[in-house]
Design a protein around this nucleic acid. Structure first.
Length: 562
RNA sequence: UGGGGAGUAGCCAAGCGGUAAGGCAUCGGGUUUUGAUCCCGUGUACCGCAGGUUCGAAUCCUGCCUCCCCAGCCA
C-alpha cells in the first residue's frame, strides 16, 4: 500500500519542483486573518501547508493576515496560535504578520505609482462600484486614471500622512477596466482607515488590501507554493500581475484547492460569529462548534482531526463530507487509546435481595480490553446498584438480550443477576428492580462457566459519583447549513441535553480533557471549563457504534410503514 | 448571456490511451463478560450527456448539460 500510495495534485507539483531543481526547499504559509476562531475547514489548510513541508524538510510560516484593523484582535491571534500548536504543528521562529511588512508594501505601492501602474482615485466607493461595470459589461476608466506620476506620488504620501478622511481617496492598480475578470478592473491597493491597528497602533492611516499585501508577503517570505482555496482562483492573474510588475527576488506560485465542508456544520466565520454573538452557543469553544477550540473542548483528539483531513484528500472538487467520517476518526483514535470506565447516564435502581447488606467487594476491571499493559482498577460492588434504564425492558422483544422480568444478565466485571421483581411508582413507571445474584459467577474466578447473552454496566449506589453529563448532537438539522439563506431555520433545538449521571468513583480523579470510554455508551471527558472537584461536569465526545440501536431504528421504520 | 473552476458507487478518492485501486458508510458472517473493538466476506460505478478519433477511451477531440466562485475601499 505504502509504495503505491498516490500523491494529491499539490504534492505532485511539489515533488516535481524538487526533482527538477526548481526549488531546493519548499516554503509554505498558513495565513489566517485574526478575525475569528479557526474551524474544521482551516484544519485542512493547516495540515496541507505544514504537512507538505514536514514531508520534504521545508519550512512553513504562520502568518497573521492583519490588514483590516477593526475586525481583527489579539484574542483571535492568541487563539490561532494555540489551536495550530494543539493540532500538532510547529512554526518555530516563523510567526509573522502582514503588518510586519507594511513599510515594504508601501514602498512597493510607490514603485507601482512610479512606473505608472497605479494611481490615486478620488471616486467614492459608490462611484467606483458604478464604474466597475457588471459581470457581462465592461467597466469605464475613472476620470482620475491619468493623473501624473508626480500628483499620484504626492497624493499617496498625503494619504499616508493622514491628511484625508476615510474613503476620500483610494490607491488603485492600473490594469484593465474592460477585463472579463473583475479582479483586474483596477483593483484597490490601499484604502484610508483612521483606526488603530492591534500591532502598529496609530502608525498608519492607510492599510493595504488583501491581494496586494498577500502577494507581497508571500514574495518577501520566499514562499514557493502559496496554497489557497478555490475562491481565489480568479485572483491568481492579479497575484501574477503584481509579481510581473514588481519582479521580487522570489516568485511564489499560487495553487488552489477546494475547501472542506462538513455536513450538518457551518464553516463561515461570519455565521459562527453570529452563533456566538446571539448566544445560541456558549462561545467559540462551545463543544458543539466546529471550531478547533470547540472540538478540543469536546474531547476530539488532534490526531483524529489530522486523520479526518487525510481521509478527505486534496482536490479541486467541491466536497461535503459526512459527519460520520469525522466521528469514525474520533472513535478509531479513542478506541485505541482511551481507558475504559463505567458510568450510568440514566439510572435505574437495582437491589440484590440475596446480597449481604453492608458488604462491599472490590471488583477488578481491565482499563482496556485490548491492551493489558494499561492495567486494571478496582470498582466497588454492593447490594444496591444503578444500571441504565435502557438496559431493562418489561416487554422485551425476542432479540433483546439485556435485563427483562425473569431474565438473566451479566454485570460487567461482576456477577450474573436475575430480575425477580419490578417496582413501579403511581405513574406506572419502573423505579426499582429486585434481583438476585449468583455468588458462583464472580468475574474472573473461574468457578462457573455459565454463559448469558448480555452484559450490562453498573455503578454501586453507595459509592457513585454524581455528575452532570452533557450529551451533544449536531447543531443543524440540514446537511448543508452553509448554503441556507438563514441558518437559524436549520438549527437543531436539541443539540444539547444534560443528564444527572452516576459514575464509578475512580472518575473523580480524572483530569479535565482526558478522554475515557464509558463502557457501552461512548467516549467522554471532564469539561475543561466547568468541571470541578465538587461539581463534576462531563462532555460526551461521541457515542460508540451501536448496531442494536440501528436495528431498533429499522424495526420502528418497518412498523411505521406496515 | 462575461470570466474562472468542477463533474468516477451514498460520502470521499485513485486513475495520466490498454480494458475501473482504496477508505468511510451499507449489508452478511465469525470472535467477544462493551450489541464496542477485532476478523472475514459484500458494490452490474450507463466513469455528467451525446458524438468523434483509435485495434482499444474514464483517459484524446467536438458539442452540450449540471453545480460552485467572481461585480467589498473584506479576506
Amino acid at each position: 500500500m505504502s509504495e503505491t500510495e498516490s500523491r494529491d495534485f499539490i504534492r505532485q507539483i511539489i515533488q516535481d519542483d524538487l526533482e527538477s531543481g526548481k526549488h531546493d526547499q519548499i516554503v509554505t504559509r498558513f495565513p489566517p486573518e485574526p478575525n475569528g476562531y479557526l474551524h474544521i475547514g482551516h484544519v485542512m489548510s493547516i495540515c496541507l501547508n505544514f504537512g507538505v513541508t514536514n514531508e520534504t524538510a521545508g519550512r512553513t510560516y504562520l502568518r497573521l493576515d492583519d490588514t483590516n484593523p477593526g475586525k481583527e484582535s489579539k484574542e483571535y491571534v492568541d487563539a490561532i496560535e494555540r489551536d495550530v500548536r494543539w493540532l500538532g504543528f510547529d512554526w518555530e521562529d516563523r510567526l509573522t504578520h502582514a503588518s510586519d511588512y507594511f513599510e515594504k508594501i508601501y514602498a512597493a505601492a510607490v514603485s507601482l505609482v512610479e512606473m505608472g501602474s497605479a494611481y490615486v482615485d478620488s471616486l467614492s466607493a459608490d462611484e467606483i462600484r458604478e464604474y466597475r461595470g457588471t459581470l457581462t459589461s465592461a467597466g469605464r476608466n475613472s476620470p482620475h486614471r491619468d493623473r501624473s506620476v508626480e500628483e499620484n506620488l504626492h497624493l499617496l504620501a498625503r494619504m499616508r500622512a493622514g491628511e484625508f478622511p476615510d474613503g476620500e481617496l483610494v490607491l488603485r492598480a492600473k490594469i484593465d477596466m474592460g477585463s472579463p475578470n473583475m479582479n483586474l478592473r483596477d483593483p484597490a491597493l490601499y484604502r484610508i482607515r483612521h483606526i488603530a491597528h492591534q500591532r502598529t497602533g496609530d502608525d498608519w492611516s492607510i492599510y493595504p488590501m488583501y491581494d496586494f499585501a498577500h502577494t507581497l508577503s508571500d514574495a518577501f517570505e520566499g514562499i514557493t507554493h502559496s496554497l489557497c482555496t478555490l475562491e481565489f482562483e480568479d485572483h491568481r492573474p492579479l497575484y501574477d500581475w503584481f509579481l510581473d510588475q514588481l519582479k521580487p527576488a522570489h516568485r511564489p506560485r499560487q495553487i488552489e484547492f477546494s475547501r472542506l465542508n462538513l455536513a450538518y456544520a457551518i464553516t463561515s466565520k461570519r455565521k459562527l460569529n453570529a452563533l456566538v454573538e446571539e448566544g445560541i452557543v456558549e462561545g467559540w469553544n462551545d463543544p458543539r462548534m466546529p471550531t478547533i477550540a470547540g472540538m478540543r473542548r469536546r474531547g476530539y483528539p488532534a490526531a483524529a482531526l489530522r486523520e479526518f483531513v487525510k481521509r478527505g484528500g486534496v482536490t479541486k472538487k467541491d466536497k461535503l463530507i459526512e459527519m460520520g467520517v469525522l466521528e469514525n476518526c474520533v472513535r478509531d483514535i479513542l478506541g485505541e487509546n482511551a481507558e475504559r470506565r463505567m458510568a450510568v447516564l440514566k439510572p435505574l435502581k437495582v437491589v440484590l435481595t440475596n446480597y449481604p447488606e453492608g458488604k462491599v467487594e472490590m471488583m477488578e476491571a481491565a482499563n482496556h480490553p485490548g491492551r493489558p499493559e494499561l492495567g486494571t482498577r478496582e470498582v466497588p460492588f454492593s447490594r444496591e446498584l444503578w444500571i441504565e434504564q435502557e438496559d431493562f425492558m418489561e416487554d422485551a422483544p425476542r432479540k433483546f438480550f439485556r435485563l427483562k422480568p425473569g431474565g438473566e444478565v451479566r454485570l460487567r466485571f461482576g456477577y450474573i443477576i436475575q430480575c425477580d421483581e419490578i417496582i413501579k411508582n403511581d405513574a406506572g413507571e419502573v423505579i426499582e428492580l429486585r434481583c438476585s445474584y449468583d455468588p458462583d459467577t464472580r468475574s474472573g474466578t473461574g468457578t462457573s462457566d455459565r454463559k448469558v447473552k448480555g452484559t450490562i454496566h453498573w455503578v454501586s449506589r453507595e459509592h457513585a459519583l454524581a455528575a452532570k453529563v452533557r450529551l451533544y448532537d449536531r447543531l443543524f438539522n440540514v446537511a448543508n447549513p452553509n448554503s441556507a439563506d438563514d441558518f437559524h431555520a436549520a438549527l437543531n433545538a436539541d443539540s444539547l441535553q444534560s443528564v444527572d449521571a452516576k459514575l464509578e468513583p475512580s472518575l473523580a480523579a480524572l483530569e479535565s480533557g482526558t478522554p475515557v470510554q464509558f463502557e457501552r455508551l461512548g467516549y467522554f471527558c471532564a469539561d475543561s471549563e466547568e468541571n470541578s472537584a465538587d461539581a463534576h461536569v462531563f462532555n460526551r465526545i461521541v457515542t460508540l457504534r451501536d448496531s442494536w440501536a440501528k436495528q431498533e431504528e429499522l424495526a420502528m421504520k418497518d412498523q411505521g410503514q406496515v
